[in-house]
Design a protein around this nucleic acid. Sequence first.
DNA 1: GCTAGTTTGTGAATCAATTCACAAGCCCTG
DNA 2: CAGGGCTTGTGAATTGATTCACAAACTAGC
Lengths: 209, 209
Amino acid sequence: MKRIADSTVRRLSIYLRFLEEFEGRGLATVSSEELARRGGTTSAQVRKDLSFFGSFGKRGLGYSVPELGTALRDILGLGKEWNVVIVGAGKIGAALAQYRGFRQRGFVIIAAYDTNPEKIGRKLEGIEIRDMKQFESDVAELKPEIAVLAIPPEEAQSSLDRIARAGIRAVLNFAPVQLHATGDMTVKTVNMAMELEGLTFALSNKDGN
Amino acid sequence: MKRIADSTVRRLSIYLRFLEEFEGRGLATVSSEELARRGGTTSAQVRKDLSFFGSFGKRGLGYSVPELGTALRDILGLGKEWNVVIVGAGKIGAALAQYRGFRQRGFVIIAAYDTNPEKIGRKLEGIEIRDMKQFESDVAELKPEIAVLAIPPEEAQSSLDRIARAGIRAVLNFAPVQLHATGDMTVKTVNMAMELEGLTFALSNKDGN
DNA sequence: GCTAGTTTGTGAATCAATTCACAAGCCCTG
DNA sequence: CAGGGCTTGTGAATTGATTCACAAACTAGC
């Protein structure tokens, strides 16, 4: 399959969100124009994005809301449940553990891990905090597909290596560092400091000054 | 000034992080090649990124670590302190309130806001939780430049409008919705669900299956 | 079942970002 | 102070993403 741009996948997620809203309201069809208006893009962009994966619409009519929803969930790999482990039971880990968006989309958080003995055995938003020592054996047994990395930046790279060795192929990283991963892993980094710097850049370089 | 791509600003943040590491280690100069290797890009990209803002290096030698650091901080608007308010004192707000990366970079969180009477008056990681009713008058008085939006998606748009009317021009949004802002505002959205979908897409469309 | 009115799907054209490639400038050595 | 060895800064070339524009396909109304 031709390589799909990150920006395209991101927009598909946005379209899916609107489709689910429309599904809830019982709408039968939607046009690329409508999706574009909501998603802040153009109708041509919507159609091009979808065209990488097939033809989902009817000319003259638009897209069937439930059909396109199913198609997008399928494309995005949301047709199944994904098991997730959180590495790092600090504040960010806690925020993630209770985050509604996860469960809604079929992500099941099966455990959190930490090295701090005071935390081990306690619960993080109903999720058991386990000893990082058990990490490898747990992963071998429960086979989570995704790890969320929520630990201080100093330890992030070594944890990533450990996650990789344990056999997890996808990581969502919240530590503010540039991580180096081997070829067959997918690592997405969410870096709040960096986003804030995007804001200050914009503020500093706007109009007057 | 020519419009600068988002991706460029993002990379400048990355370079700055490495420069600060080098500053800490007392290194005097660094080459575009070295910055590229660390940042996962190419030396030509590094030089091109910097060239939008001026000439900071010496041919044959590279860049002076402290000079380039200062230049980047200046470009990114990090030469001053920025006052930040957090809107929404839930788990995500709490995680942000204690996030080290903020203070390190000169972001000062001056208050958090919520509408829940049980939370108002308490502290969130040492930061006072104030009544959202006071929001407008507080903003008029303290003039924070940046708002962090950490509330449920249903209320996000109306809160954004309120933030805009109060006179704040820059917003970092954690609610998983597409927000519509007026022209002179800068809104960056961090959407964890969307990042996860990028991962499941990658997992589903990799090699074998 | 014909016509008018929509809306899709997609090549072609445009616009934007990245990479190439090399002259120009600087340091160091002898 | 001349020559060798690096590394920058930047036009030109390339690669990638977005927008344009229109034929093809469908619905609905008569």
